[in-house]
Design a protein around this nucleic acid. Structure first.
Length: 441
RNA sequence: GCGGCUAUAGUUCAGUGGCAGAACGCCGCUCUGUGGCAGCGGAUGUCGUGGGUUCGAACCCCACUAGCCGCCCCA
């Protein structure tokens, strides 16, 4: 390791600097507030899980599990019978359901409404809106059947909450796409029908789709290959293979959404890549700022997941928002708005900048800054070695007002304050300073 | 994982074989209690990394790394 090469963040990961984090915090604060209003509690699960959890939960054959996970053998244990394979979580639903089972949350009989905010890891080729460490804001509603976890009302509530959350965050022009992929039986019948329908036309499809036709026919449906669209459009629709139960469930989800005035479009080709999805699946997309990675969030029902992980029957529904993508969208919107208004995106300013006029005033300046901060103001303090010009320049960049701390000010406790937005200069006694600055002096 | 484009100052970028540049920003001075304007001056740097070709490479070639675009996939 005797290299002098500059150390860099690893591929697909990035640092979020202070010019970015206020937006992240605003998004997370808003999300938490909305979750709280809808009766969700926060859950924090480990970033590390056993590889088996994802193999069983997400599905061995999915792209995520078969080629995108960061997985390794636990070193200290590798040689013993305790050897285990560990994985950096590629998604959070499996972990939440594992915790649900492990802590026997179902035994309480109550419906569990859980949300999480945290990093996930997938070893994909990085691109705008696609990172190897990325953040998801997600939620799960899960419980025993007697808790009503299976009710279509839960599906509609989740979707209505998401619509409200996106609106509250200021995301404009989002679109909700909805589908039902049926229960396990429906899917089996549909898969068989798809295979049959694909057989005579398979040779006409592109290489990728030919592979899918054999491996996982459902995935042929969301192919973007232009030449194959005509054939794909002619394939059987999942809606025609839904059993009475699934169809009735989906109808009730739609009815509840209609009652809430949440707009959606049915996309019969919306299937999802994780094996655990059943019945309702959905995706929210946007057109601003994301290029081709236009899916802002996705989710669906997973009525069999708990059992796949060795737990009790516990139907559930959940979603994950791509926080990175949400942020990119908000930034793109803000930039577009600023460009339209002929301005730039403004950075927030401090309430005041305290400028000692000489080194002798440094202690008094820091004390004044302390008093103002204690009063709740956002304040920065300079240094007595700065020339007045530099103090003004720095103050103008950082703060709305400058407070001069010179010999006279320290002696008589009356401070000179200049407001940068209106250029007005006033003398304010120490006792009134905080209030005056707060009011915009 | 596949195909393509890109990598030069803090930032945005120009420079296509012959002294490393511009704008903005930064620092200093004009100007030691009133800045923002202006004038003058200054520092910007492993030209992504490593090799090769050449008298000579930021420039041409190869490899690597990273970002971006598309595919794949997904959030």
């Amino acid at each position: 390791m005797a290299s002098n090469a500059t150390l860099k963040a690893v591929r697909g990961t990035r640092d979020l600097l202070p010019d970015q984090t206020p937006l992240w915090n605003r998004v997370e604060t808003t999300a938490r507030a909305v979750f709280t209003r809808y009766g969700f509690g926060e859950i924090r699960t480990p970033v590390l899980e056993t590889t088996e959890l994802f193999a069983r939960g997400v599905g061995e054959e999915t792209d995520i599990v078969s080629k995108e996970m960061f997985t390794w053998e636990d070193r200290a244990r590798a040689a013993s019978e305790k050897a285990q394979s560990l994985t950096l979580r590629p998604e959070n639903t499996a972990g939440v359901v594992r915790a649900y089972i492990e802590h026997k949350l179902g035994e309480t009989g109550a419906l569990q409404k859980l949300y999480y905010i945290g990093p996930q890891f997938r070893r994909e080729r990085p691109q705008r809106g696609r990172y190897r460490q990325f953040w998801q804001i997600g939620a799960e509603v899960i419980g025993p059947q007697s808790s009503g976890a299976e009710s279509p009302l839960r599906d509609a509530e989740i979707l209505e909450m998401l619509a409200s959350m996106l609106d509250e965050l200021g995301i404009r022009g989002w679109k909700l796409e909805l589908n039902s992929v049926g229960n396990a039986d429906d899917r089996a019948r549909y898969n068989a029908a798809l295979r049959e329908a694909l057989q005579p036309v398979k040779h006409l499809l592109c290489e990728d789709n030919q592979r899918r036709a054999d491996l996982n026919p459902l995935r042929v449906l969301d192919s973007k290959d232009e030449n194959d669209q005509e054939i794909i459009n002619g394939l059987p629709k999942i809606a025609d293979y839904l059993g009475e139960e699934s169809r009735e469930h989906f109808e009730q989800v739609k009815a509840a959404l209609d009652a809430c005035g949440v707009a959606y479009t049915i996309n019969p080709r919306l299937v999802r890549g994780l094996d655990y999805y059943t019945r309702t699946t959905f995706e929210f997309t946007v057109t601003t700022g994301l290029g081709t990675q236009n899916a802002l969030l996705g989710g669906g029902r997973y009525d069999g997941l708990s059992e796949m992980l060795g737990g009790p029957r516990a139907p559930g529904i959940g979603f994950a928002i791509g926080e990175d993508r949400l942020i990119l969208t908000l930034q793109a919107q803000a930039e577009a708005d600023a460009a339209a208004a002929g301005t730039t995106v403004a950075e927030p300013k401090l309430d005041a900048y305290v400028a000692p006029l000489g080194k002798e005033q440094n202690p008094a300046a820091l004390k004044l800054a302390h008093d103002l901060r204690k009063a709740g103001l956002t304040v920065d303090v300079g240094d007595g070695s700065f020339k007045l010009r530099k103090s003004f320049d720095t103050a103008d960049k950082l703060a709305r007002s400058i407070v001069l701390v010179g010999e006279d000010e320290v002696a008589n406790g009356i401070y000179t304050v200049k407001n940068f937005s209106n250029g007005e200069q006033t003398k304010i006694a120490a006792a009134e300073l905080a209030t005056a600055l707060q009011a915009g002096a």
